[in-house]
Design a protein around this nucleic acid. Structure first.
Lengths: 115, 115
DNA sequence: TTGACATATTCCCATATCGGAATGTATCAT
DNA sequence: ATGATACATTCCGATATGGGAATATGTCAA
């Protein structure tokens, strides 16, 4: 890149950015059930067709979905492997929220004793 | 909102958007170890102070971090609870990548038998 | 070939974004 | 009060974004 400043990491750069968009999460949720043609997504989510195509393009570029042609239709399906990095990153904080919940629980039990 | 089109969901809208920015993930990773003042983050991650303050602002607005004043310092710590929704959303796909891996494994074993 | 259908791409616009620079604000020590 | 320290905020510019509308591409059927 030749530019001294960048506005924001491109949405196409990685899975984290791709799933930041709610509609794209909706699409992934929908595709999680089953492989589907674009038209089904359009109908089910009530979005414009070009909008869906553009979101699918982003998801495909970061590897979150795979596409294959089937006659006149193009079937999109999830590539779940690409979601793992997100899962694993969030997992590194699991210990923390368990501790925090544990502390809340302990404090509650302390109060019960005092009563 | 009065506008017919929006460019993109605001970064401050939810945790998904907040963690889409790599530097904010860096900050969260750093704070996961221990509560820290802003200056430590600046020094450790090699970012400009205003930049760090702005990222912290975003993280605080979506509840990913908590701040408390300690003399001249402001200590920032993680609020791990706010990461759970991300973890849980990614978990809904766990079954899928396990299946996909299983299929890969099975295919590999098939090939071994044929040799 | 000519449509009809399914999907992708392009163009335009309003707006959100980040970084840098400058400035504001709060707290403590003297 | 003054200055030093630690952060936060504001303003700016370059750029990325998503939606809408229009258009292009690709596939099948007659």
């Amino acid at each position: 890149m030749y530019h001294s400043s960048m506005a924001r990491a491109a949405t196409t750069s990685d899975a984290f950015n791709a799933v930041a968009e709610p509609r794209r999460r909706d699409i992934l949720n929908y595709l999680a059930l089953q492989e589907r043609p674009v038209g089904d997504i359009v109908a089910s989510l009530g979005l414009e067709q070009p909008s869906v195509s553009k979101h699918l393009r982003v998801l495909k570029d970061v590897g979150l979905v795979r596409a294959r042609r089937e006659g006149r239709h193009i079937l999109y399906g999830i590539n779940a492997e690409a979601i793992r990095p997100l899962h694993e990153w969030t997992s590194t904080f699991e210990r923390l929220w368990r501790n925090q919940l544990q502390r809340v629980k302990e404090r509650a039990e302390e109060k019960m004793k005092k009563v």
